[in-house]
Nucleic acid binder design. Structure first.
Lengths: 116, 116
DNA sequence: TAAGAATGATTCGGTTGCGGAACGAATTGG
DNA sequence: CCAATTCGTTCCGCAACCGAATCATTCTTA
């Protein structure tokens, strides 16, 4: 089944979800941090700093900083690659899964609230 | 017609849209700023600082700052209320409309790309 | 094994955002 | 009139973030 959304519905969906996010007392992530987190959890590993930088079209320091922040929240973990010690592999954590699960449910609830 | 989205689909939708937003060369707004912008454009006027603060569950200075920023981008305009000169009415602009129209189309395209 | 390339972390100066307190302007009520 | 209230803004100290340049470590290759 394909999901079809008019531009207006899409905007309203976005509004409801962002509003829910702003209101709630949760770690407040920047768009970049959110993009990193979602990419790590929703696309197939391995994820390296360099790879994420390329995917997001952003500098490596930006990724490093985002990982620092996400690491503080224990939403991701860094692991040096055994095969190539220069690489840092970004791994998922329980807290990260929980956070995204909640976020997914917020967004999908916002979708059901949409007027047609 | 009701829009139904599984949590997983919702997350993936969010990922695609956030990714598109991070990649593109556009003013990058914080979640709060985006929430203000969307509220002003998608809910019925009038919009005051106090009202927005209440809606977003955020302090008034926070709204003032968001309006300053959105004003720099000319996505929103301030107008003192003729009836009560203490009030500031937040008004829409062409640039704001264009920006949100584009964003709506990004999100709705992300929705159509969703695997079922 | 020595030189060079690749990778991620760190530092630097500057910008932006935050919460909270205090403020000035406008309105209302006694 | 004048005090009290309402509304938005400004100020303050602080934390996070930015891009650019540089650094340390590790791998590759000649």
């Amino acid at each position: 089944m394909t999901v079809s959304l008019s531009d207006m519905q899409a905007l309203d969906l976005w509004r409801r979800a962002v509003l829910a996010g702003v209101r709630r007392e949760a770690p407040d992530l920047s768009a970049r941090q959110m993009a990193v987190l979602l990419t790590v959890y929703l696309t197939s590993p391995p994820h390296t700093v360099r790879g994420l930088a390329a995917t997001l079209n952003v500098s490596k320091p930006a990724i490093t900083r985002a990982l620092d922040r996400l690491g503080q929240f224990e939403m991701v973990r860094r692991k040096v690659d055994d095969a190539d010690h220069r690489n840092v592999l970004v791994q998922r954590t329980i807290k990260g899964s929980v956070f995204l699960r909640e976020w997914g449910s917020i967004v999908s609830e916002a979708a059901t609230e949409l007027a047609s």
